[in-house]
Design a binder for these strands. Structure first.
Lengths: 218, 218
DNA sequence: GTCTATACGACGATAGAC
DNA sequence: GTCTATCGTCGTATAGAC
């Protein structure tokens, strides 16, 4: 076997961060933070409970006083990630407005969720396959609900004639996809602020929907 | 530990496929195909050489008569994936033409590469972190070259005034990102053909660049 | 080239002292 | 709640017969 050397990252060098309010305190919270950084970098199966323990400064066995399994730690992270995104998206469209306004608000919220918690978005989007069906189900349901918000706004814009799109599904894939990848590259080593990225992507989403918009200079 | 049950996929149900010409024949090729399917579904660290052997119908130890390590199998797959994409993108812009034509050709080639080899694109994009720096380097270089093709076309369109974009980097992130995720959802269980997806995404890319285009009905 | 057998370290998880 | 110690399993990889 190799290992011991360095491996290339799949994300920018960013600090480990979790949303306020939902993160447990004490050792339980420190385990969650450490696992987030390690899962984002090495993947779930590439991270051992011994490495998590070392990062926290506890013995690996102590983890089991706080979580029933390593898998449950991932399940909590994935749930927090999907819940945070769904909460932000719901808030974004709560004010209502024309479809173009709601699409802009959705895209803005989506991008900012990924710039504010890039590691969480990477883990949430790319480690879900490591969860059993039972543990993944709650997060998957939230993901479906989040996708629904975008599909509904696109359908509304087609309905009232403000969008120029023959089909909502492919547009939703494109808009969702370009937002989802933000967590993989956003970080201090690139030149744009979170707001610049968000406003640029808002313009891109509106353009995809068939509305010509100026794009704010980055 | 759990396991034994089913786990959610991170991709659509698609057949395992590799590009013609570059894939080795015989047992070596069958190992590559089996590993592609397993890595795409379970990730590199979630796949054991015993599972690969079982999928091929050989003993796990026989793998080492064809590859020096499990990691080298992944390295070969990632290299094939990046090489295939880079080849197609290079061919797409070889004919030249106006920036809008070249952008359309690039996006079309990018999407079709991901619809034709979705598993390969998933492994290439999301398992690179499991490779050592040395084994990842050749593929990374190809990835940088592929990104360069897109950046150059966007810059040319701004230069000659045909594109309306203040900054090429964010547009490249958006256009590249929406294409990269195609491999995660394209498959027989969704209603669009590869051509429909490609033409829709071509229109999206042109719209992002600031060119108003009709989108072909899906 | 493929097999059987196995080395041997790392894995997730548990037991039990404090 | 944290530790030490350890269990049983599975990991990658090798040796050597055929």
């Amino acid at each position: 076997m190799r290992d011991g050397g360095w491996e290339p990252r799949r994300l920018a060098a960013v600090a480990v961060a979790l949303p306020d309010g939902v993160t447990p305190s004490g050792t339980r919270g420190r385990i969650l933070h450490a696992a987030l950084g390690l899962f984002a970098e090495w993947g779930f199966h590439g991270t051992s409970i011994r490495k998590i323990g070392a990062a926290v400064g506890i013995n690996s066995a102590t983890l089991y006083a706080h979580y029933p399994s390593k898998e449950q730690v991932l399940a909590d992270l994935v749930q927090i990630g999907h819940a945070e995104l769904h909460h932000r998206l719901t808030e974004a469209v709560r004010a209502g407005g024309a479809p173009a306004e709601r699409l802009a608000a959705l895209m803005r919220a989506h991008v900012l969720a990924h710039t504010d918690f890039p590691l969480l978005s990477v883990v949430t989007n790319s480690e879900l396959h490591a969860l059993s069906a039972e543990l993944a189900a709650p997060a998957l349901a939230l993901g479906v609900a989040s996708e629904r918000l975008l599909l509904d706004v696109l359908a509304a814009g087609i309905e009232d004639g403000s969008f120029d799109l023959p089909d909502v599904r492919l547009a939703a894939r494109a808009i969702g996809g370009m937002g989802q990848r933000v967590g993989n590259w956003f970080g201090p080593d690139q030149p744009h602020t979170r707001t610049q990225v968000a406003e640029a992507f808002v313009s891109f989403a509106l353009r995809i929907a068939g509305i010509t918009t100026p794009i704010p200079p980055a």
